[in-house]
Amino acid sequence: MSKMKQDQAGMTLIVKTITRLTVGLILLYGIYIVLHGHLTPGGGFPGGVIIALSFIHLMLAFGKETALKKLDQIRASLFESAGAIMFLSIASLGFVGGYFFLNFIGKGRPFNLFSAGTIPLCNIAICLKVGAGLFLIFVTLVVLSKMEER
């Protein structure tokens, strides 16, 4: 019975099949954007948005429960705070070189993946914050509007 209900949640079979195929690719694309943020256009914020969109995509196609099983609200909020703390601690670690926000790691050669000092780390932190945050905003709005239907 519960399995029947699970199948009926969300959209039609076509959408679900396509989603199953594409959602992983979207997630990977988001990760790519984040990791190459210091080389190509993009970075933490756009990458985080794309990652959040992959979860939102899942939620639209399969219904709320499936997406929340992958990433529930408490864990998303933990990720969000962890991202913020990570960003702040990277910035504060600049104090080892004397200044707040100092880029204290070796810069490396331009156009290499491992270059630009703390920027890729900051991108990852921002991605965590933005991805989890945007997903949480979406979930909260969905929950709020569900509440009022009742």
């Binding site: 909020s77 933990l78 969000e80 705070s81 913020a84 703390i85 910035a91 504060s92 707040f100």
Partner: peptide, 19 residues
């Protein structure tokens, strides 16, 4: 910068473990 760092870090730590 401590004037900004202290309240921000406390805010995020509370949001991490305050629950």
């Amino acid at each position: 910068p401590l004037f900004v760092i202290i309240p921000l870090s406390v805010a995020f730590i509370i949001s991490l473990i305050g629950r």
